[in-house]
Amino acid sequence: MKLLVNGKSRDFNAKTVEELIIDLKLNNRMLYIQLNGKPIKKEEYKTAMLKENDCIDIISAVGGG
């Protein structure tokens, strides 16, 4: 199904937020995730279901001064 992840439209097989971050190989990272503008807590990754055209923002820490 098509998902809009960080502004880019892509096809994914993932059905939950957890499956999505595993697909993206981000599952061991500290992340901040919003699903359609709503923050998703880590303990909700498993139960947060995805549907066609959902908009997901994934933020992580990067190098900075």
């Binding site: 880019k8 981000l26 061991n28 901040y32 994934i58 933020i59 820490a61 990067v62 900075g64």
Partner: peptide, 19 residues
């Protein structure tokens, strides 16, 4: 130690700085 917060670049996933 300082870090910045950014949207993950799906085309160029960088190393995990926190690790």
């Amino acid at each position: 130690v300082t870090v910045a917060l950014r949207r993950v670049d799906l085309d160029n996933t960088q190393e995990d700085i926190i690790e």
